[in-house]
């Protein structure tokens, strides 16, 4: 099992699928993710989008920011909806059309998980991208099962008492062909993973950490900086898993950078005590060691994060 690594000098190739003038908030991290996902997938794509900020970004009738057919489905049904499209395309002999889901974390980790797990078991042929802003941000920042430990949301005003679900590991345990984590602060890594997934077959899953300015309490110009800090402090390592077992860590933490550097940039963590910060740090360290063990390699991160 050869570990593999990100091409540090990956050149992003964009097809003009995503348009400017969309409805995202100024500075939105998710809009960046949508850009690199759609423009890497290209025009021969049908997208499925459940209720989410992505649906808002996609645009109200008769407008669309996406130059591809978009089917907006119900919150829990994305993977099943995409499966129906793929199977109909196959019956029509249209094997060169990509089927893409872009869903939020609520529509993936929570209410959409049954359909996603079923699609993964059947290895339905689709690229499923979860744009993870760690809560129901479109409805006013309520907690989802992706909300991290102790983060404030409007439904966990005292801080969330439970840990975030590890969706990448859950999907890897389905032994689907491809699972990857990515974030908007590393656009080359994100675009490369989407382009790689596009060339594969079966269920390919990418979870993209996308800071929500309003929900996280981040300044309008802060999405990219916070996204990079999530990686640089080890809070959200960038890695890939093929067939549920071939792990490759692409970008890991910068040695000596505590998770506090990430937490202090966001209003949702400002209530934390020193003990709570220490607890989160211990948790991050533990998860990082587990990932190392799964990857079965001495990790040499390819991109050492530079401070922005």
């Amino acid at each position: 099992m050869e570990p593999f690594h990100a091409e540090p000098n990956y050149i992003i190739e964009e097809a003009p699928v995503f348009s400017s003038g969309h409805n995202a908030c100024p500075g939105c991290g998710e809009a960046l993710a949508v850009r690199y996902v759609l423009n890497s997938m290209g025009p021969k794509t049908v997208a499925v989008i459940p209720p989410s900020c992505i649906a808002i970004i996609s645009g109200p009738q008769p407008y669309s920011s996406m130059r591809i057919p978009v089917y907006q489905t119900t919150l829990e049904a994305s993977a099943a909806s995409a499966a129906g499209i793929r199977r109909a395309l196959v019956r029509q002999g249209k094997d060169d059309v990509n089927v893409l889901v872009i869903a939020g974390d609520g529509g993936t980790y929570d209410i959409g998980f049954q359909a996603l797990s079923g699609a993964a078991e059947r290895n339905e042929d689709m690229v499923y991208v979860c744009l993870d802003n760690e809560g129901y941000m479109n409805t006013g920042a309520q907690k989802s099962s992706s909300t991290p430990y102790l983060a404030y949301t409007t439904s966990t005003p005292g801080g969330k008492p439970n840990d975030k679900k590890d969706i990448a590991e859950i999907m890897a345990a389905h032994r689907v062909p491809y699972v990857a984590t990515a974030t908007v602060g590393y656009p080359e890594d994100l675009a490369r993973k989407v382009a790689k997934a596009k060339e594969m077959r079966g269920l390919r899953f990418i979870v993209v950490l996308t800071p929500c300015l309003d929900g996280w309490g981040v300044p309008d110009d802060g999405a990219v900086r916070v996204s990079r800090l999530a990686v640089q402090t080890g809070f959200f390592p960038l890695y890939e898993v093929e067939e549920g077992e071939r792990y490759a860590i692409n970008v890991g933490p910068t040695p000596g950078w505590p998770v506090e550097r990430y937490l202090e940039t966001q209003r949702r963590y400002r209530h934390l005590t020193a003990d709570q910060v220490a607890a989160i740090q211990a948790h991050v360290d533990h998860k990082w060691s587990l990932l190392h063990a799964r990857a079965k390699v001495e990790c040499v991160p390819m991109f050492q994060g530079a401070e922005i």
Binding site: S81, A83, R91
Partner: peptide, 24 residues
């Protein structure tokens, strides 16, 4: 026929809708 053994009736109907919308 392509028989899709869904994991729930909800997903079965969800796939029915999109397969039909895709033209079969």
């Amino acid at each position: 026929v392509d028989l899709m053994t869904a994991e729930s009736e909800h997903s079965a109907m969800s796939a029915c809708i999109t397969a039909s919308l895709t033209g079969v």
